[in-house]
Design a protein around this nucleic acid. Structure first.
Lengths: 342, 342
DNA sequence: TAGAAGTATGCAACCGATTTCAATACATTT
DNA sequence: AAATGTATTGAAATCGGTTGCATACTTCTA
């Protein structure tokens, strides 16, 4: 392997000490302008490349941030990541990304790797089965900031960036009621996840506030994947009286339901009104367009990263410690799949 | 900050030298079984955490791999990344990910960052405007393997993982012809990108082989985003005679076209048959389902990462150097949007 | 039993940038 | 001209793990 150019080589070249070279390269003010230029020039000429390992070893920080998501190949998550990457790069941080595959075990293992990689901060959206946060203890102990997004732990020691899931589904439910729905089915994912637990609350509250009685039979816990529609619709058809409103916690599943319904000749929204969640591309592409909750995913990535980095750079640790939750604005988007009045 | 536990602390604790501790921790064979166990035990007890900076500095490798994609928030890319992450994690490599936003400038800057981060290898899908690969020179010079995927440079010094884009569109075109289409429009992205240039070839060859004359008016270069349908359909309607086949280089755009066509009362596939590309979720969800090319994105991520890591681990550098291109199987999936015969 | 061969451990020199403390050079003030 | 202050620079220790070479200790062979 070719020899690397180090600050010592530069120092020898320009006849100064490594100390001065180091200072010049990091724009330390206590180096004469002329000297600095001479050094920068030599560095460029010699093809100098700073060694981040040496630097990180000495400075005890890596200038990198870890991100753990349940799955990389999800429209929502990749949009969040895009927002994070933008901010991180701007601020000179690297992004180390891994996925937990919705498994607590993998999440623990990923957390360890991130810790060993000495990330300066960690951003996490929990796996479905994660019910404790023991495995983040090493981070807490070393005061390495951990910030959760979307799926946050119940524990309120942790800072999280979220939307108001309860409110969002409250609004969606109220909307369906206003459209004349009498029996609304709510389909959601694993209730261990705050996101879904909160939404269920919103559904209940809205029913209550509008004089409806909550009925557990109308709540389905389900995978929300591409094929879920068939299973969900089968269940719906077994209910008597037949539901006339459907609230699905993700647009992919909502679209899948829509297709399954149409296949059976059930009209949307006339026979059954649908509202999805996320405002994914798919909600705008199927027919009828699916009403949904706009989830500002890209923005969530930006906000989460910005907060974490602010915390790191300004050394005003307290801000994040005192902040408990950052709630982003989400909004109901009404489209044809739920318009039953004229 | 609390003091870190180092191998020196462990050494002092068990009454051995740091050398032996280091060897024991990295499973070096020249340490007695008993000694090793004693050391591992102490390490665990004392809460030892290896310092990768010190290790990387000395060993001159980072155990991390860089990935540069045009955009993170794309169904295709995020699926590729998911495949890469799986393999990388299994092999003990970290993933440092960044996006070029389709800009050469950002790609260059990202490349520099990756180089400075001393990734052990680099995986790249080129930005649209990238027409040279000068900026990877530092990697080539230092013999750090760079592997391209999907969007690869023309230059055939580089190893790439791709599908046979020419064949894919050839098949799609031939299919449309077989379905009775006489005038087929092909919509694709920036022709600087090999992916689209190759597809255009496939389109031309297929026309030729079936006795059609290629007509440049039938080729549109376009953004292939969610809103592209309106613009594309407007252009189509200006053509005379009216086209009866549409080959769109991405499913999002194909779906967008489908919607724009339906809005105008043009029947798919009767008046106009459509074939998309990628086999994204959306192609299966719209009505009619869109015929498309199955692009094995997850698999591409796995294969690319596996090859890169093999190369790194086995030290048999030659394999990758001698491999020019790895082509994955893609296949035409025929759905309702292009079935015109009974 | 001497000598060879092998096994287990340690010494000390790295890897390359940063930073504390101190020294020197230079400018300004009285 | 002396004193004080300020701007530049440098020596050396440090971050923590790895590794070539040396040494001590076993075991085996002739």
């Amino acid at each position: 392997m070719k020899k690397e150019i180090t600050i010592y080589d530069i120092a020898a070249d320009v006849g100064l000490s490594p100390t001065t070279v180091s200072r010049a390269l990091s724009n330390h003010p206590r180096v004469k302008e002329v000297t600095r230029n001479k050094i920068l020039h030599a560095a460029k000429n010699m093809g100098y490349q700073s060694n981040i390992f040496a630097s990180s070893l000495r400075k005890r920080r890596s200038k990198s941030i870890g991100v753990i998501v349940p799955r990389l190949n999800s429209a929502f998550q990749s949009s969040v990541l895009a927002g994070m990457e933008k901010i991180a790069t701007q601020a000179g941080y690297n992004l180390i990304i891994s996925q937990s595959m919705e498994s607590l075990e993998k999440e623990i293992s990923n957390t360890k790797i991130m810790f060993n990689s000495r990330v300066d901060g960690l951003l996490v959206s929990k796996a479905g089965t994660t019910d404790n946060i023991e495995h983040f203890q090493p981070f807490f102990q070393k005061d390495i900031p951990v910030l959760f997004f979307d799926r946050v732990p119940e524990n309120n020691h942790c800072t999280g960036v979220v939307i108001n899931n309860t409110q969002a589904i409250y609004d969606a439910t109220a909307h369906l009621i206003k459209e004349g729905c009498k029996r609304i089915v709510h389909v959601l994912g694993n209730l261990q996840i705050n996101v879904y637990a909160d939404r269920l609350k919103g559904y209940k509250y809205a029913l209550m506030d509008h004089g409806f009685v909550f009925n557990a039979d109308n709540v389905f816990t389900n995978e929300l994947d591409e094929d879920s529609g068939e299973r969900i619709v089968e269940k719906i058809l077994k209910l008597n009286p037949r539901p006339d409103g459907l609230l699905v916690s993700n647009d992919t599943s909502a679209a899948s339901c829509l297709i399954a319904l149409k296949k059976r000749g059930i009209k949307v929204p006339e026979d059954l009104a649908i509202v999805g969640f996320n405002n994914d591309l798919i909600s705008r592409m199927v027919e009828p367009n699916i009403s949904t909750i706009n989830y500002p995913s890209y923005h969530m990535g930006e906000v989460a990263m910005k907060n974490l980095i602010n915390h790191l750079d300004d050394e005003n640790q307290e801000i994040l410690q005192k902040t408990n939750t950052i709630t982003l604005r989400s909004a109901l988007i009404i489209r044809d799949s739920s318009k039953r009045r004229h």
